[in-house]
């Protein structure tokens, strides 16, 4: 490959790249493939363009990997710095000073709940295939926004649908997910409660999980345990143990 000084015209480049990009179909694809079988020179041209393209992409990727590595090395050095003994000693002293201050217990209480919530909360990944009626398109658009992290935009698609179908459990659940991502926990909580009341919804267990997490944030640990028990998450057991320890 790349052994013969063949000429490749601009038109030929376009045709070869269309093939490599998968832009040919039907008769055009068959004609291209027949030509490849019949003309060794055409095949050589294709190989040359293909290797150039792959080579360019690979060079750029290697350079990208170097950048990733430098970023990683810089993170590691920061991490090592934070791990040095003196800074931990200083941090420990500072901690003692701060904790001796007013409001220690309430502060600790808040941060424990917050820490647990943050540690266990992960965004629902969303759906890939949707409902089966004419609302599909709008729902899908909302789901694309949700997956892209555009929760307010996602609500713009889903809220009108929910107004039309206030008992639709899929909408109730995902609008709640939007609210959770937007940290509007009260709104999210109300919708999740409706999903749970439905009883037959496929989202009941997930709704229980997220409602449990919201209750942790509200320091209502007994209620949190109740909801977490009703979820099907593997992590629920460990989380419940931690809550029980905090209660003691």
């Amino acid at each position: 490959m790349l052994k013969e000084p063949v000429n490749i015209s601009l038109e030929e480049y376009s045709a070869l790249e269309d093939y490599l990009d998968g832009n040919l179909s039907g008769d055009a694809l068959s004609a291209f493939e027949n030509r490849l079988k019949e003309e060794a020179l055409w095949k050589e041209k294709l190989s040359q363009v293909m290797i150039l393209r792959e080579g360019i992409e690979r060079v750029a990727m290697k350079s990208q990997l170097e950048e990733f590595h430098q970023g990683l090395a810089s993170k590691q050095s920061q991490h090592r710095f934070l791990n040095t003994r003196w800074i931990w000693t200083a941090a420990a002293s500072l901690f003692i000073v701060i904790t001796a201050g007013v409001g220690f217990w309430s502060g600790w209480f808040d941060s424990s709940s917050e820490r647990l919530f943050t540690a266990y909360y992960a965004k629902d990944p969303g759906l890939t295939s949707m409902m089966s009626d004419s609302e599909d398109y709008e729902f899908d658009r909302g789901m694309i926004e949700y997956k892209s992290g555009e929760y307010a935009k996602s609500l713009e698609f889903w809220k009108p649908l929910l107004d039309l179908s206030p008992k639709n459990d899929t909408l109730l659940y995902f609008v709640a997910m939007d609210y959770l991502q937007l940290e509007s926990l009260d709104e999210g909580k109300l919708l999740l409660e409706q999903v749970i009341l439905d009883g037959n919804s496929l989202f009941v267990q997930d709704a229980n999980w997220y409602l449990g997490l919201i209750k942790i944030k509200e320091h209502k640990y007994q209620e949190a345990i109740f909801y977490l028990n009703a979820s099907d998450r593997d992590e629920a057991e460990g989380l419940i143990s931690k809550l029980q320890e905090m209660e003691e």
Binding site: M1, L2, I51, L52, E54, G55, I56, R58, V59, K62
Partner: peptide, 10 residues
């Protein structure tokens, strides 16, 4: 080897 040739030429 071929990719290296492209890298060098690039």
């Amino acid at each position: 080897d071929k990719y290296e040739q492209v890298e060098h030429a690039l």
